[in-house]
Design a protein around this nucleic acid. Structure first.
Lengths: 237, 237
DNA sequence: AAGTGGTCTAGACCACATT
DNA sequence: ATGTGGTCTAGACCACTTC
């Protein structure tokens, strides 16, 4: 494990445990260098991670301070920065899927563009409704190139596809680009998600990338409006 | 201007201009060091900015590659990483505000918590509907501590408050935490935004922070569902 | 074996805030 | 004037990929 990860984890824990509290001034970088036995650049890198996460603030000439957040917000922010699949997000709760379709098809034109693959490629076409603790939660329509993610079985899509990709195929998921918008549910969506006709839904269109740079997933998720929210930290520079 | 900013801007431009295209391998860090006359750490920092923005991918042992995005997506991603107010976002279009309320009040309890100020503090209470090119777009309810952001005049809230804070007060906006959720419009919201009763709206709850670490803004924005989307780049590590 | 990006250091100098 | 964090360097060593 890298030193800067160890340091930033350690400091994040101290904030989460309340050892450093909101608005409190933290030790100077110089002192942290001594304490962790590392150079200035390494400590700086560790602290910058926490700045990006939105937990602390640095002021040149003055020092470093815990951000003005209450304990609850601190916890949420610390969570929001991790990128996980739905199954991991609702760890501890029962996540099951109802499969509406699972087949291999020639890639639809719009998906070929998003996945940047040849128009005569084949992809898995996965359509499922996911339930958390027996409540319908989200309807997912997902395309994955069969060349990149081979051998998907029904049992994988009943559970976590991300887990299959990482644990079984030993591929590394690197990042995702997601666009969230809002519209009215279609009648079919309303029925599957237990909503009234015309109720709001949140639509998340997502492309997932492996660490090889290839797009491995293009998906559109329709979320129940009452069970959806995203947390975003915006930073200047 | 710092060297790593210059370098990352230069490379971003080359990607935007199509000088480096999707999936193309970029020059090695070693060569970029020579080209820009800088050290490895500096070039790495410049490239890491583009990684966070979602434009490029690095693979240890192999090299650095432009991400698998079409030109349109590249442009959107490059834009999405900047944090601006509404007025700046719709630069070039006519942005005006209809003021529903503009007063100074004792801070409501829930806002005092979010802003982390004393419960007997006073805040500006700003309620306005913003129009882009004469179409209603978003309804904003905003609280700002009068001690932090003094002297707001009606002409400021008709235009851009962010601009007033930065240009006139010479304060630095550092970051914002935003939570986006979805619900049905109230009758009043529907009327003001030109929607039907019960139509979907996107609700963005936002806290803005100055570089001093103080929260200067707590706001709730109600967006028309057909004119709202957010772009998010998620990264592992 | 050679070459890539990743981490880390020790020290220099700079920009900024406080005293 | 002092001390903070910010940038930058030159060079070392490591982890990984490719040949």
């Amino acid at each position: 494990m890298q030193k800067y990860i160890i340091i930033s984890n350690d400091i994040r824990n101290k904030i989460l445990k309340g050892e450093y509290v909101a608005n409190q001034q933290m030790p100077f970088e110089k002192d942290l260098c001594v304490h962790y036995g590392s150079s200035k650049m390494t400590v700086k890198k560790a602290l910058d991670i926490l700045v990006t996460e939105g937990l602390i603030i640095k002021r040149r000439g003055s020092g470093t301070f815990v951000k003005d957040l209450n304990p609850e917000e601190i916890e949420r922010v610390a969570m929001a920065n991790q990128f996980r699949g739905t199954t991991a997000l609702y760890a501890g709760q029962k996540v099951v899927s109802k499969i509406l379709n699972f087949s291999v098809v020639k890639v639809p034109e719009h998906a070929a563009k998003k996945l940047n693959i040849a128009p005569d490629s084949f992809v898995y076409d996965i359509h499922r409704v996911r339930y958390v603790d027996d409540e319908p939660f989200v309807m997912e329509k997902m395309y994955m190139p069969i060349d990149l993610i081979p051998n998907i079985k029904e049992k994988n899509i009943k559970g976590s596809i991300y887990e299959y990709i990482e644990k079984d195929l030993h591929l590394n998921i690197q990042s995702a680009h997601r666009t969230v918008s809002v519209r009215k549910a279609t009648d079919f969506e309303a029925e599957e998600l237990g909503l009234e006709k015309g109720d709001p839904v949140a639509v998340a269109e997502q492309r997932g990338y492996l660490d090889t740079g290839s797009a491995f997933e293009f998906s559109t998720s329709i979320h129940r409006y009452d069970k959806f929210s995203v947390e975003i930290v915006l930073t200047r520079n």
